Amino acid sequence: MKMGWRELIRMKKRFGLMGLVTTLIIVLILMITGLADGLAYDNGAVIRNLPVEHMALSQEAEGQLTRSFLEEQEQPRGTEALGVQNMVLEKQDGTKDDVTVFALPADTAYGPKQLEALKRGEVLVDTAYAKQTGTAVGDKVTDFRTKMTFTIVGTVTDGRYSHAPVLWTTLASWDDWQVKMQTNYVSAFVSQDSFKTDLTTYTKSDIVKQVPGYAAEQNSFQMMRLALVVIGALILTAFFYILTMQKMKQLGILKAIGIRTWTIGSGLVLQVFVLTLLSLAFSLCVTLGVSQFLPSGIPFRFEWETSLGYGALLIGTALIGSVIPLRALKKLEPADAMGGMAG
């Protein structure tokens, strides 16, 4: 291992260039990971922030809140009724925005505390949405389908649903809206504790995974991240393979004077480990720094656990790849190497 460490120090430029390439690959992996985590959080943030753990939906909804239609008479004891539905908001200037309506009782134990002060026809909007669109407290918005008008009386920071802003209101306003649409239903019954019901029940994490587009989005990012990990490992493997082939004569001399293949090989593995570890540490610092300056509109979320997990995966695959050059080293005959140098 001492030889491998000394070579790292003496060949700074060569290993530094490889370290730079490795760092760029890891930064790309971490940036994609942060974007994937940010989109995953943004896609179901309002559900994640609800202090409930169990939800009952209709069976045919398959875990999607906007597809669940329940009658309030089915409500199990100890639960609250939750209404969720998409809405196209038409503002006073004529512009239209897609939002998702969330409705809970005014005296809810789970939703925003501001709900208890809302009157019929009053709503709360997402803070980010209000900032991006210039919507202010006191503005009136209209549902494009029913032409029912709502008054914005406050903002909340509970998040978004399916990448759409959330509009909070009470079940009283929800019922008035349902009358306009000639329907009468709620979407789910929710509770912090488990409850008995004949309806299909889900955990909060299950509901988040069933948010429209969540699975397809995350699967795409997962494929990209794994592909980059494999590419990074292949680049490191190719680099050390070529480097080993270039040093084959010198390595043959080392074997001829009695240095074991295991000793030489452990030095090569050490080089791979140190190079990828230093690249990972530097990449984490770069990614964390960049995340502080990204615009708020970019759903980027730096998660230490996920980032370290993919970093460890890259180190592991690189170490596995470093075994390939060792096969050529093991087959090397000292006499052949010495004969090559003499010639």
Rank of each mutant, 00 (worst) to 15 (best):
V125T: 15
T287E: 06
L24T: 00
N184E: 06
Q271T: 07
I235C: 04
L313K: 07
V21D: 00
I242L: 15
L70P: 02
M1W: 00
G83E: 04
T203P: 01
G34C: 05
V88P: 05
K147R: 14
V272G: 11
S58G: 05
K255R: 11
F240Q: 10
T133G: 01
T146F: 04
G232A: 00
D206T: 10
V141C: 02
T203M: 02
L50Y: 14
T146I: 06
I253T: 15
F302K: 00
L124F: 03
E90I: 02
G78K: 14
K12R: 14
V46Q: 07
S162I: 02
L57W: 03
L284D: 02
I235D: 00
G111R: 10
P299A: 09
E303F: 10
D206C: 08
K96S: 05
Q59I: 10
D336L: 08
T149H: 09
T170Y: 03
T149I: 12
E53A: 11
D206S: 12
D97S: 14
G289H: 10
I29Q: 02
E116A: 13
F221T: 06
F195W: 05
L251W: 04
N219Q: 15
V52T: 11
Y129A: 03
M18I: 14
L20T: 12
G321V: 01
G252L: 06
E217I: 01
G321M: 03
E333P: 06
Q292C: 06
T287I: 06
P325S: 05
D97T: 06
E116M: 07
L24S: 01
K147T: 11
Q292A: 08
A117C: 14
A342S: 12
L313N: 11
N86G: 12
P105T: 01
F302W: 10
T157V: 12
Q114S: 12
V137F: 04
T100V: 15
A328D: 07
S194I: 11
T157P: 13
R48F: 08
M341Y: 11
T183S: 10
N86P: 13
K209M: 13
R225G: 00
S279A: 15
T287Y: 07
V137T: 03
Q64C: 07
G213I: 01
N49W: 05
P51Q: 08
V88I: 15
A103G: 12
V274D: 01
V274A: 07
G316A: 13
F282N: 07
T201V: 08
I32K: 04
A128C: 09
S191P: 10
C285R: 13
G213N: 03
I264Y: 00
I315F: 06
G63F: 00
S173Q: 02
R120M: 07
D198G: 03
R301M: 04
L308R: 08
W304E: 01
H163A: 12
E116Y: 02
P165M: 05
N86E: 09
Q85L: 12
I324V: 14
T287H: 08
A103R: 08
Y129L: 03
V101G: 13
M245V: 08
T155E: 09
L251P: 01
